[in-house]
Amino acid sequence: MSQASQDTAIRTGRVARTLIYLVLLLFALFYLLPLYVMLVNSVKPLEEITGGGMMNLPQVFTLEPWFKAWSSAQIGVDPTGLKPYFWNSIKMVVPAVIVSTVLGALNGYVLTKWRFKYDTILFGLMLFACFIPFQIVLIPMARMLGIIGLAGTTWGLALVHVVYGIGFTTLYFRNYYAVFPTELIRAAQIDGAGFFQIFWRILLPSSGPIAVVSIIWQFTNIWNDFLFGASFADANSQPMTVALNNLVQSSTGVKEYNVHFAGAILAAMPTLLVYIVAGRYFVRGLMAGSVKG
């Protein structure tokens, strides 16, 4: 028995263990409940919801709300459904994630392996930029996007997300590369490899885990962003979150809860999928990244 508790070295009695399991299960319920409510109610006809019984399984199963949320619900002035906004989000997220991750990797490489005077201060400035309340940049950013002709475009939003994502991606890669043996870089230098050759041939092949973290982090953050989308996008370039909010908050007509729920799940789907597929690596890397600063 003493072998069994090797991992924690803590022993608990039977009553205590039962209580612990109880608490853990209750919390699991707490976290699952909203998802459950959204799921069951998104496949009910509207009458069933307004008739009460939010927690009940559907009596009549229908996918109609999903189709409606996706392709025909009224959002803003047009009954387009969330579909075009979903693609807006994709078009914004993909380039922004790629560019910010590549830049973060290069920055992390420079800041750990090619150190120069004041590099820590520079990194500190970059890091602080992660934590600023974005309200402070909204006004000038709106002006700037207008000046460079990207106001109200998906590219403009992508640019904004690259700019304010670099701090985090740099942080991840810097912390990761900081423990990458510097002797390898020196060996490669003696072997005659240059800056980019070292990066490409030596560092990058070992960067898989942190690249996953950076990509998931950026993907989730950018996909879930609302503030920038609401501030800088026009009706044609709105991302999914803004469209969802418009759908849910629209004050005209009957509130179609089932469509709202279906829409909310649609908006959450990509990040949930990413989380289910690669969440383990993400948490592991995030711990290494954020706890250790």
Binding site: P181, R186, A187, A188, I190, D191, A193, R201, S206
Partner: peptide
Amino acid sequence: PSNRNIAMVFQSYALYPNMTVGQNITF
């Protein structure tokens, strides 16, 4: 360093982990 015609053996050996032994030697 690469133009000094020197070679170095490191304490940690500094072998490139992603390359085979052959690739390490000929890099």
